[in-house]
Design a protein around this nucleic acid. Sequence first.
DNA 1: CTGAAAGCGCTAACAT
DNA 2: ATGTTAGCGCTTTCAG
Lengths: 341, 341
Amino acid sequence: MSSRAKIKDIAERAGVSPATVSRALSDSGLVAEPTLSRIREAAQSLDYRPNVRARNLRTQKSMAVLLVVRDVSNPFYLEIFKGVEATAREAGYSVLMGNTENHPGRELEYFDMLRDGHADGMILMNGKLPLSQSRDPKQLGRLPIVVALELIEDCVLPHVQIDNVGAACGAVKHLLSLGHRRIAHICGPVPEVMSVLRREGYRKAMAAAGLAIPEGYEPIGDYTIASGAALCRELFSRADKPTALFIGNDEMAFGAINELRRLGLDVPGDVSVVGFDDLFLSECFYPPLTTVSQPRAQIGQLAMNQLLKVMNGDAAIEPLVEIETTLKIRGSTGPAKTSDN
Amino acid sequence: MSSRAKIKDIAERAGVSPATVSRALSDSGLVAEPTLSRIREAAQSLDYRPNVRARNLRTQKSMAVLLVVRDVSNPFYLEIFKGVEATAREAGYSVLMGNTENHPGRELEYFDMLRDGHADGMILMNGKLPLSQSRDPKQLGRLPIVVALELIEDCVLPHVQIDNVGAACGAVKHLLSLGHRRIAHICGPVPEVMSVLRREGYRKAMAAAGLAIPEGYEPIGDYTIASGAALCRELFSRADKPTALFIGNDEMAFGAINELRRLGLDVPGDVSVVGFDDLFLSECFYPPLTTVSQPRAQIGQLAMNQLLKVMNGDAAIEPLVEIETTLKIRGSTGPAKTSDN
DNA sequence: CTGAAAGCGCTAACAT
DNA sequence: ATGTTAGCGCTTTCAG
C-alpha cells in the first residue's frame, strides 16, 4: 500500500504541472484534450483522491453544514434529518449533527464551530440564539444561518416555518365542527414560542366560536408522554370535564389517550383528541390519532435550500418560507355526544 | 468588524513567536508563566479562535467521525445518535451523518469520505461493506472503522453487537412459558444477517421445546408496519392459526396488532405478541408491547468508544463487544387459552 | 492553454 | 522556555 498519491505525483506522471492537474480534475474546462485525458488516466492509475483538508484550507470552505437541534433523539426530527441530508448531499455538503440539550454552553459552542470553520453554514432548529448573540439579534446580519421549525423572534435571519397559529386554529375548528364546546388545550412549555403560538391558535378558534375558556383549561406540559397523561388526569378530575382535547404535540396526546383509557373513557366515543406533529406512529396508534401533519422532509429540504442560497451569497432570499400543514382526520375524533351540548 | 485574528497577530501583540502562541494555546505546558498569560490576554482581546481548517491540514486530522446508517429516518437510530454524539463530543469529535438508503454507490461514497479525510473514523451501522471492499473483507485490517448494530460476516473489523439469537430465543421462551405452542414468527428481510439471526433464535427455542414449525409459520416481511399487517392477516387465514406471534421488530408488531384488532381478535386475550427493539412508542402503544429492549444509547456510546480506541491506535481492542438485552414484559402477552393447548 | 510561485493558518522538528 | 524554519496539499493569481 503506497501512501496516498498527491497532486504532485500525478503531475509528474502526466508530465505537467500541479496547477494543470488541479484544473483538469476540477473540470474547469481550461485544459486541452490530449493533456486532459492523460491527467485523468494518471489520476486513475494512481488511485488519486484529493485531500479534503488541504482543499478546505485553500478554499476557506468546509463543505459541511451544522444541523442544530434541541435533542437528537426526538423522533420529530427524523424526516427533517433526511430532508436536510438529501439536499445537502446533492449540493456536495455533508451534515454535522448538533445537539444542544438546551444548554446555553452548547448553543454557543455550535456558533463557535461555525466561526472556526468546522462548517460553512448552520440550520438552527433549537429556537434560540446563544445569549452572547442575542443581545443584538438584528446584528446577526449575513451570517450563514437559517432558522427552521422554531421561530426566533426579532431575528433577521431567514426562517422556514409552518403557520403554528393557523394550524392550531384549524385543528380546534375541526373539534368545534364536530359539536364540541368544552375543549381544553394541553399546552407545551411556555414561554417557548412554538407552544405559545399553538395556544394562540386554540384561543383564536375558541374566541371565534364565542366560547370562553374556563380557568385551568390550558394546563402546561413539557411535550412528554408522561406530562400528557398527568395533565389529562387533572382535567378529568374537574366538574366541567372537557369533551375534547387539543394537545400541543402527539407525544402528550398519546399520554392523554392512554390515561383516558385508564379512566374508562372511550376515544372518540366519550372524548375526542387532536394532536400536533403527526409522528411516525400516530397513524398506527390506537385509535389512530387525528393530528396536524407537517411535511417534515420538505421542511428539511427547504431549510437546506435556503441555506445554500445564503452561503452562495444570493441576493434575494425570502425572509420567511412558510410551509403548509394539513389536518389528518383519523380515528381519535368524533362527534360530541348530544347530551354534552 | 476586523477580519479574523490569526496566530500571527496575537504573536505580534504579545511580543512572541507564533510557535509560542500555538504552544500556549494548546496547553502544552511548555510555556512559562509571564508569557503564558500575556498570550492568553492577547488572544482574548483579539477574540482569537484557531482556524480549524489550517489545523486539520497540519495535523492530518479532522476531528470528525462518520456515522453510517441505512436510513436516517428510522426511529430505531435515535438514541444511538445520541449515544454516539455525546461520546464523540466529549472526546472533541463531531459527528457526520451518513445515509446509505442501501445504495451501493452511497456506501462506497462514505468509505471515500473517510479516505479523503472528511472524517478520521467511521461507525458502520448498515451491515454492509461496499462491494469493492468486500472482495477481501479480511484485508480491511486497521482501518478506523467500527461495525455496530448489524453484523458483517467474515470481517475483521471490531464489532459492537447484541446477541440476536439469544434475545430472540428468550422472547420465544417467554411465550412458551405462557403455555403457547402454536407460535409463528414474522421475520425481517432475508438474507440480512439480523433477520436470520432472530429467526435462528426462534427456531432454537421451538426446537428446545420439541415443537415443529409448520410450513408457512415464518413469513418474511420488510420491517414495515404494512408488512406486519399483511403477513399477520395471512397467518390468521390459516386453519391452524397461531396463538402467539414473535415478530422481528416492533414496527411489524404494531402492524400485526392493529390487524388483529381488525380481525376482532384480542391481544393478549386471543393472541400474544412479542416484538423486538423497544421503540420509543412501544410502551405507550395499546396494548403496551412486550418486546426485546436494546440499550441503544449504550450501543452508540460503546461503538464510539471502540472507535476512539481504534483511532488512537490502541493495541488491545476487543473484536466483539456484546451488549445485554432485556425482555420487557408488558401488556401484549398473556397466558394461552387452555382450549388451545 | 500551461507553468511558476505564492500562500491559506497552523504545528512540530530542530535549534538555541 | 522560546524562536526559526519548514511544510501539510491544494488552488489560484500572474505570466507567458
